[in-house]
Amino acid sequence: MSETEKPRQKLRTGFTTGTCATAAARAALISIITKKKINSIKVSLPKEKEITINVASCKFSDTTSRCSVIKDGGDDPDVTHGAEIFVDLEITDNIGQIEIDGGDGVGRVTKPGLGLEIGSAAINPTPKKMIIQNLTEVGKEVLRKNGIRVVISVPKGKEIAPKTDNPRLGIINGISILGTTGIVIPYSTASFAASIRQSLDVTIAMGDNTVVLTTGGRSEDFAKKEIKLPDHCFVQMGDFSGYTIQQCAKKSIKKAHVAGFIGKLTKIAMGVKQTHVKGSKVDMDFLAKMAQKCNAGQEVIQEIKKANTARHAQEIIIKNKIDGFFTAICKEAHEQMRAHSENKVEIDVILFDFDGCALGRYP
């Protein structure tokens, strides 16, 4: 390994906008319950992890509270780093109900394909679950007699939004409240490449020559239900599909199962070796051509060309029952990955929907 390949130091993790909103909401509720200003707060993350976060501001009355948390992206080059995320929390008469909405600086959804209702605040499902879980943990007594309403706002959200993909995705007037794990893993080519090589070396050291390459944690969880192999055979390749399969070939891995969702697998099928969202975009014309090959009608083809995201295209394909489309994407991804491996690695591709069902596979 050359000196340039070694990460100089361990990169600092951060926390997501979803975790900030959760921390502010939890602090807001506790301040009402205890009648005390909260300076730091423990937050429950997905997968039973906990993190302690500083609370930047906290004001409260008997039934309302406003708390804020400063977003910390760690060593990730994140445009939301340093943004102050506020939660206005109110005790309501809706017994047992937790309502969550976006205020100033949180974007509104105007296009399909994001897994969120058009017109709703751009708050993803995992942050919503985190907020509900955390408020339920500390507010059981409150929820027996009352409800809780949470409004998330980001004063600089409108200013930050043009630096994100939100305008292209049809999310207007602010940023999104995001996160699937609650933690931001720094996006570093050198450190990620090193971790991929290390993971493959562990697989080989354990006497195995088959791996499951996934684009992230969620696709890995879904793949584990489909493919029964030891944990050390599962390798998260993230955005580095080309590099990972080349390393598999170099290290004499015999077979690689490749598992992911429509967006990343489409990029792989297009021949993109590095699929980070900022580095490449899904080409809707490519997906339209794939649909045409599967005998989709002109109306469907035009709809796909205008699709907002790969997920939106997926919804169009499912709605119009275009047979063979997802298998065709898997076949193209298979051929590209085979080529990147110089035909040295046997490859099997699975495309999951967002609930973990296999939509397509090849061969």
Rank of each mutant, 00 (worst) to 15 (best):
Q198G: 05
A190D: 03
V212Q: 12
T203W: 01
I204Y: 03
I185R: 15
V212G: 13
D239K: 11
A193N: 15
S199R: 01
D221C: 06
G207V: 01
G238A: 13
S199A: 09
T203A: 09
S191M: 00
T215W: 14
S195F: 05
V211Q: 04
S195M: 06
D231E: 09
S195Q: 05
D221H: 15
L229T: 12
V184L: 10
V235P: 00
S199Q: 04
K224W: 02
S199T: 02
L229H: 14
S191R: 08
D208S: 10
A223M: 02
A223F: 02
Y187V: 06
V235M: 04
V212L: 10
I245V: 12
D208Y: 13
G238K: 13
G207M: 06
P230H: 05
Y187C: 06
Q198P: 00
F240R: 14
S199I: 01
K224C: 08
V184A: 06
V235R: 06
K224D: 03
L200K: 03
Q198V: 00
Q198K: 11
L229R: 13
V212F: 08
V184W: 05
A190F: 04
T215A: 14
G217D: 09
D221V: 06
S199E: 07
R197W: 00
A194K: 15
M237K: 10
T215V: 13
G238L: 14
V211D: 07
G216W: 00
P230T: 08
E220R: 04
K224V: 04
R218M: 11
